[in-house]
Design a binder for these strands. Structure first.
Length: 581
DNA sequence: GCCGTTTTCGGCCCGACTGTTTTCAGTCG
């Protein structure tokens, strides 16, 4: 799929344009890039089917950008970009990741110090060269070094979504081979960890024949997007994809698929415990099976492997040695929420606040996902750039949603649209929308979108005050972290959880791939305190509704059950929760 | 460069915050 590659080039063109103070064009390129990466269909397919006209239907794509997409599809290059890159050969993708660095700084760094990548930048900062540049100073230099250190800590880890989308694509390709019998992801990806080091895949061959394994491996090492083959063998091959994600494929015997899957899924600590448990029963557990002496007693499925050592089957998300084995032995393992148990998404943006789709389009997409309800929660007025709604617009939107609800029911759609908003928590903990208006909505989400560098005490008080507002039912992305990019706010999460319990406020598990906030550990803390949670996507496009599974995965990793998640509840129970003032 | 219930040109892109400065440049959401 070329969408992301083209989007990345457009993002870079936007930055080059911004360096030259060109107005409006950068936003146009950014908008097109955003639309491209949100697209679920391959632009190549759209172009083949509907030519340039089809491309121009993508929001933000007009005549010029459509031509550039076509140019890339045909030649693998975009001349406009090549021209800029020739003039300033800088690794923009790398430098822009540094918090506090934007187009103007990249330009100044290149012009004055010939800095082209992260390594150059770090060296120059360490040598105190940055502070001498105009508009730079000691503090900027220090911030840049801190930000680079943060990036380095997270280097080599990929977002769960990136790894999963690639893995699913690989599996789709491999499943076309008729000799393949079973295939599954393993490793941290199967455990749905928030970041992934590499992709592990496990497969079996129908008749176990060596020449068939070779066929499979041949397809694997020649997949689209591979830039390096590390290993090529009949039982294991290893490759690197263009985003520098590595993937391993192992072929195992059908009899050992379960034990191999269990072994390669990990986690390592979980496996150490399961092996100990096996030893206590005079058994031996390894990747080839469960053995009594030399006799194989289990191995074909994970279920029989766990059963053989006296455990129930464990969902991969639980296998972190965080007490799951002990809980299982005491039959106290919770029934964690299923991927199909969410009944609605309560944090979605519409085109009222600059999102891509109308409320109706969002509702129809939600209906297709089988949801009972969809909550529209646009930004409010403090966020001017996001077209935040003011009191008057919120009331207008309320009427529009009432109308749409009654119209939709006559057209065979069963989905019910709820009206909320994502109000801004201002520095003093008050909200940017009048309580009288908030009172008229079905629910209110409150979130922090500004002044993220307060002290721990100030930030905690700020959020506590917002939760004490009787209309606030949900706190969005409670810790504010962006994976691999920005740390959490300074925040006393225990106090926040405590206040959430006292005020019956639900804490969000934001499913947006770069957020996953709350994270699994904080989810577990909240669940233990009996605090209610809500899994939302923060969709700004109808395709983003699909991100739900990433949030569900984190909820599962945090041992949350259906009862803990308010949007796994039927609508009557949900509305009762919202109206509990 | 895109877009159109202001429709083929003229809008679009604001305000807080930080760090640099002494009136402002750049980043972020």
């Amino acid at each position: 799929m070329k969408n992301q590659e083209i989007a990345n080039i457009f993002y870079q063109i936007a930055i080059y344009l911004e360096m030259d103070n060109i107005s409006f064009k950068p936003q146009a390129y950014e908008k097109a890039a955003f639309a491209l990466e949100s697209l679920s269909e391959d632009v190549k397919d759209i172009f083949q089917r509907e030519a340039e006209e089809g491309l121009k239907k993508i929001p933000g794509v007009g005549e010029n950008i459509a031509k550039k997409i076509i140019e890339y599809l045909k030649t693998g290059k975009i001349k406009e970009y090549e021209k800029y890159y020739h003039k300033m050969p800088v690794n923009i993708g790398e430098l822009i990741q540094v918090e506090g660095i934007g187009p103007k700084m990249i330009k100044a760094l290149y012009k004055n110090l010939k800095i082209t990548n992260l390594e150059d930048l770090e060296k120059a900062a360490q040598q105190g060269k940055l502070r001498k540049l105009p508009n730079f100073g000691e503090k900027t230099e220090k911030n840049i070094l801190e930000s680079i250190a943060f990036l380095k800590r997270s280097r080599g880890r990929f977002l769960l979504s990136e790894a999963l989308f690639l893995a699913e694509d690989i599996i789709l390709q491999l499943k076309k081979i008729k000799e393949i019998d079973k295939i599954s992801v393993a490793g941290s990806l199967r455990r749905m960890k928030e970041t992934i080091g590499d992709i592990d895949l496990l497969a079996t061959i129908k008749n176990g024949a060596k020449e068939d394994a070779k066929k499979v491996m041949d397809v694997f090492v020649n997949l689209d997007g591979i830039i390096k083959v590390w290993d090529y063998g009949l039982t294991k091959s290893s490759v690197r994809f263009d985003k520098k994600i590595d993937a391993d494929l192992r072929v195992v015997d059908d009899d050992e698929f379960g034990s191999a899957l269990q072994y390669f899924t990990g986690s390592k600590d979980h496996n150490i415990k399961t092996r100990k448990l096996a030893m206590e029963k005079n058994l031996k557990l390894n990747e080839y099976g469960v053995f009594k002496g030399k006799k194989l007693t289990a191995g074909k499925t994970e279920e029989e492997v766990y059963q053989a050592i006296g455990l129930p089957y464990m969902e991969p998300e639980l296998r972190e040695d965080r007490g799951e084995i002990e809980a299982a032995l005491e039959e106290k393992l919770p029934k964690i929420i299923g991927y199909d148990e969410i009944k609605g998404d309560l944090h979605c943006h519409s085109d009222w606040d600059g999102g891509e789709n109308s409320i109706e389009e969002m509702a129809k997409a939600a209906q297709l996902l089988g949801y009972e309800y969809l909550g529209i929660s646009d930004h409010t007025k403090f966020l001017r750039i996001e077209n935040g709604l003011d009191e008057k617009q919120l009331l207008e939107q309320h009427k529009a949603i009432e109308k749409l609800n009654s119209r939709i029911q006559h057209t065979g759609y069963r989905i019910q649209i709820l009206h909320g908003c994502e109000a801004n928590i201002l520095n003093d903990g008050s909200l940017d929308i009048d309580d009288k208006v908030l009172a008229q909505l079905d629910y209110v989400i409150a979130g922090i979108h500004s002044s993220m560098k307060m002290t721990r005490e100030e930030m905690t008080q700020r959020m506590i005050k917002a939760m004490q507002n009787p209309y606030v039912k949900i706190i969005s992305h409670p810790t504010g972290r962006l994976i691999n990019r920005r740390d959490e706010y300074q925040l006393d999460i225990e106090k926040i959880i405590e206040t959430a319990r006292e005020t019956s406020t639900a804490l969000e598990i934001n499913s947006f791939p770069s957020r996953l906030d709350l994270n699994d550990k904080n989810i577990r803390k909240a669940v233990e305190k009996g605090v209610k949670l809500v899994i939302n996507t923060d969709a700004h496009h109808r395709d983003h509704l699909q991100f739900m599974r990433f949030g569900i995965a984190q909820a599962r990793r945090g041992w949350a059950t259906k009862n803990d998640i308010i949007n796994a509840w039927p609508i009557d129970k949900l509305l009762k929760f919202f109206h509990k003032i």
